[in-house]
Design a protein around this nucleic acid. Structure first.
Length: 648
RNA sequence: GCCGAUAUAGCUCAGUGGUAGAGCAACGGUUUUGUAAACCGUAGGUCGUCAGUUCGAAUCUGACUAUCGGCUCCA
């Protein structure tokens, strides 16, 4: 069977390599080095992920993916999902399989199991069965489905209605089946799947099932309700442990947990779900956020406005909310008149603009409001401060001329940059363009998208494009924030709106006397103060920067005889507008320190006989420990400087 | 809203049909302390709500409310 014919493939570095015709990816790896074979997982073949066993053709572009390559997890996790499905079908005979894709850091598989409702206890049993299948060293074999009709009827006989539906959908796209074979070469399980996969289950070294939950077939709530199992899979036990530690760390930072522990906020049955009570410590964080925001906005030429919480439905009829946003709004009737609790601030700002005539000279007009809005969220989706029914937006609307548009967007980007830096947050930008169902002419969309892009470029900000992901009324830039443990949060949005200026027939008088429609930009930087506070809590793990801390310094006398001197220091701090507290309890100094550390108070001042004798204070920093003694006035100077500079 | 789980003291949690518990916090007292927990005591609960089963319910059943994990990732 030896063939003399060779083919030539192009490797990642652009070099060409001669290999015998009929060689697979594994053969290619072997021809390069034996150590490569061991670590090889799959291929990028002509820019597509493919099985390592794929037979190569002349002039293919081939890259061998090893375990060091992040893309190798696609193979691993997808294959682990298959083993999960096989295990579930072994344990629950009437289980039917739906889909099992790879997700960030893991995978899931959806099942319909009429006879059984999965519980967390089942996960251990399933894991055990999975391990048994892995130890059996089953082979993944890819076969083309040549006789679609036969396969369809096979799926139907087996009751695999979801697989049948999928095959029906993909039957013209050279469908493939992955078969798992035991060591004797007997097929033991199969799944209709595009792949790619590993070659053998023994390559699965470290996995864990994480949770069960509900899901719908095809994410459609009118379709079958399925049971979903989430899991994760890694190349080594160490990697898995690191990942599990990361999950644990995230749990420790959970703002709902810290919110209770640190007395930051609460929610009550009596108020209803998704409605937040801000306790003093988090209210101070919010006050600092608001003051910082107002100060910068005034400096940047915004004018602060206020609008009411409710308005007659007439307003929402004009704005279109009553028609398009209906299911998110709270309605009430007073004096036989229907009112709406505002879900957005924009119609009010539009009315302010419309309340008088504007000259082109007045533009841009920048209107800003910390406006509290209410949106009906479905009962199952509320999440601490991050997803609520009542929240305050840091909203602003810019009305400008077309020739001012790009500059205005640049101004917004700059403001976002300044504000996020004040919290020490990193971010990145995404530009979303015209969706399929959009209002407005192509001309105006082109103008708007080009303007957003130009502003990003001129500002020098890197961005990714999300095609067709804009709002129906205009394109947008989203800013995503990255927290201390690498999670991404939705941050600022900048949107262009063609809808409201039209609906409200907004105009200004141009130089030539003509009436023109202004360009309207919506933007929010914190997004919602509630969600941004949640981000800050989790980012700092409750250990806020000094300028955000409700308690900045705690004064702690060692014994009662130090109370008088301590009180003088405490008063001096207060006189200097430092948020100081005084621990007068008859506790040991160790207990006081422990409590202050747990409360995450940035600075502790310890006063005993020595400090009084030398007329100094002992300073201890949260987590850092004893900083030694200082003159009180020097400490005050330093701390005021740190507050002013926001400690970045 | 849907699928599933959970709900006991301010917090974290034990208690599976027979008199409601612990630790921390709170409060009172003693202690006067040198860089992450001094000691003793006191008080605190219609066991989420409402109904049912039972001689008897925190415990079993049902409804409701709230919270938690998901319902966006597509062979």
């Amino acid at each position: 069977m030896q063939t003399k014919t060779t083919i030539s493939v192009i490797l990642k570095d652009g070099s060409k390599r001669e290999i015998p015709e009929g060689s697979s990816g594994i053969d290619l790896a072997k021809s390069i080095s034996n150590s490569l074979v061991k670590k090889s997982v799959g291929l990028v073949l002509n820019d597509e992920l493919k099985d390592i066993t794929t037979i190569l053709k002349d002039s293919d572009k081939v890259e061998i993916i090893t375990q060091n390559d992040p893309r190798s997890y696609e193979f691993l996790r997808h294959s682990t999902a298959h083993v999960l499905a096989e295990a579930v079908q072994n344990l629950f005979k009437d289980a039917k399989i739906a889909i099992g894709p790879v997700i960030e850091d893991g995978f899931y598989y959806d099942f319909e199991i009429p006879s059984h409702t999965l519980t967390p206890d089942d996960l251990m049993k399933i894991e055990k069965e999975m391990q048994r299948l892995i130890d059996e060293e089953q082979q993944f074999i890819r076969v083309n489905i040549n006789d679609t009709d036969k396969q369809l009827s096979d799926f139907k006989t087996q009751g695999e209605k979801f697989k049948a539906e999928l095959l029906e959908q993909y039957k013209n796209e050279s469908p493939t089946l992955y078969i798992l074979e035991d060591r004797s070469g007997k097929p033991v399980w199969n799944d209709f799947c595009r792949g790619p996969h590993l070659t053998n289950t023994k390559q699965i070294k470290a996995f864990k099932l994480l949770s069960v939950s509900g899901a719908y077939w095809r994410a459609d709530e009118t379709k079958e309700s399925l049971q979903r199992i989430y899991g994760t899979s890694w190349w080594s036990k160490e990697e898995l442990d690191t990942h599990l530690q990361k999950l644990e760390e995230a749990e420790k930072r959970d703002h709902r947990k810290l919110g209770r522990q640190m007395d930051l906020f609460s929610m009550h049955d009596e108020t209803g779900p998704g409605l937040i009570l801000w306790h003093p410590s988090l209210a101070y964080v919010r006050k600092q956020m608001e003051d910082y925001w107002k100060d910068l906005h005034e400096k940047k030429g915004y004018e602060i406005v206020y609008s009411p919480h409710i308005a007659k439905t007439d307003l929402w009829d004009i704005s279109g909310h009553n028609e398009f946003y209906r299911e998110n709004m709270f309605y009430m009737t007073v004096d036989e008149q229907d009112y709406v609790l505002k879900p957005m601030n924009c119609p009010f700002h539009v009315l302010i603009f419309k309340s008088k005539r504007h000259s082109y000279r007045e533009l841009p007009i920048r209107m800003a409001e910390l406006g509290t809005v209410y949106r009906y969220e479905r009962s199952g989706v509320m999440h601490g401060l991050a997803r609520v029914r009542g929240f305050t937006q840091d909203d602003a609307h810019i009305f400008c001329r077309r020739d001012q548009y790009v500059e205005e967007i640049k101004g917004v980007i700059q403001l976002i940059d300044i504000i996020y830096k004040g919290f020490g947050l990193n971010y990145f930008a995404e530009l979303s363009t015209k969706p399929k169902d959009a209002i407005g002419t192509k001309e105006i969309w082109d103008f708007a998208e080009a303007g957003l892009e130009q502003a990003l470029k001129e500002y020098g900000l890197d961005y990714k494009i999300n095609p067709e992901d804009g709002a129906f009324y205009g394109p947008k830039i989203d800013f995503k924030l990255k927290d201390a443990i690498g999670r991404v949060w939705q941050g600022a949005t900048v949107q262009l709106d063609f809808n409201l200026p039209n609906r409200f027939d907004l105009k200004y008088t141009e130089k030539d006397g003509s009436q023109q429609q202004p360009v309207m930009i919506h933007r929010a930087i914190y997004g919602s103060l509630e969600r941004f506070a949640a981000l800050l809590i989790e980012h700092f793990a409750g250990s806020f920067l000094l300028w955000l801390s409700y308690k900045q310094v705690i004064v702690m006398p060692i014994a009662d005889r130090h109370l008088e001197y301590s009180e003088k220091i405490y008063n001096l701090l207060k006189e200097n507008n430092i948020k100081a507290v005084f621990d007068q309890r008859a506790e040991s100094i160790n207990a006081k320190i422990r409590d202050a550390e747990l409360e995450k108070i940035p600075y502790m001042i310890i006063i005993g006989d020595k400090e009084i004798a030398d007329n100094v204070i002992s300073v201890r920093a949260k987590k850092k420990g004893n900083l030694g003694t200082l003159q009180t006035n020097i400490f005050i100077e330093q701390i005021l400087k740190e507050i002013k500079e926001k400690g970045i």
